[in-house]
Design a protein around this nucleic acid. Structure first.
Lengths: 136, 136
DNA sequence: ATGCACCCTGTAGCAACTACGGGGTCAAGC
DNA sequence: GCTTGACCCCGTAGTTGCTACAGGGTGCAT
């Protein structure tokens, strides 16, 4: 299939597909006589894997490791589990941080009654870190 | 104070301070005879405002708007509240997304017993979006 | 033959920094 | 008086993960 079809099949956009090839995440496909990229099913599967992993927030380098693992069926897969676990821990950490942040922001907003900026509680709160409860 | 002191006083690193000056977020400070930047308290307060806002996840452009408001004490401050409210909504959205993500990841990890990568459930799950519950 | 959708390459842009190279300044210690 | 070290200057390039051109070529229908 041509790059446009692959793009529609996977939801990755065309520029992104070429970018993945350039950084070596996708192998170089065959070319047609007109020098168009010509993809097969293994390419589609690999790109689906990459897009799905990206949607789950894995970095390109993590995905590279995961792909290396899956390219080498004999290797122990504990490494894949470790990468995913570490990522899960990062996501949980991020959720915790954002929750603290939401609390700060909730405290800050809704305190303006439309007065002059000189007395604005929002601006005041932003300038004064000392009043924050969270540890950011 | 010199840039190193300002850096220590605010937690912003030196390169970042010069960057903020370059993009017009901080005013150009006075210079000593040796051409060193020489900051005063207003600079420190402004930088504290910027860093705190960045820690709360406001973009540089949002911060620029907030600073414009606070520089003009006569203006209505409802705008500040709108910026903060919109940002709060974005944070809540992000938390919701990450929570879905965490659920996916929790489903994926811990399914490896150290077998061969060929049978790895983690790798399999990443290649197969169809089995995801969440709407990412 | 001409329009249109599609494809090619290479480069530059985005946010928000961070790092680096190649220099200048200043106070302390020998 | 000379060196050592900590600090400062500027300008530019790198980071991540794309996205957006510019300037061309290809393939098919009308």
């Amino acid at each position: 299939m041509k790059i446009g079809e692959l793009s529609r099949a996977t939801g990755a956009n065309i520029e992104t597909i070429r970018y993945y090839e350039r950084i070596g995440l996708l192998p170089q496909p065959a070319r047609t006589r007109a020098n168009y990229r010509d993809y097969g099913d293994p390419h589609r599967a690999r790109l689906t894997f990459v897009r799905h992993s990206r949607e789950l927030g894995f970095t390109i380098e993590e995905i590279r490791s995961l792909l290396d693992l899956s390219d080498d069926p004999g290797r122990d897969c504990g490494e894949a589990d470790r990468i995913a676990s570490r990522h899960l821990a990062q996501v949980e950490e991020k959720i915790a941080q954002l929750t603290l942040l939401r609390n700060e922001l909730t405290r800050i907003v809704g305190r303006c009654r439309g007065g002059a900026a000189a007395d604005c509680r929002v601006i005041e709160a932003l300038g004064d870190h000392g009043r924050c409860a969270g540890a950011h």
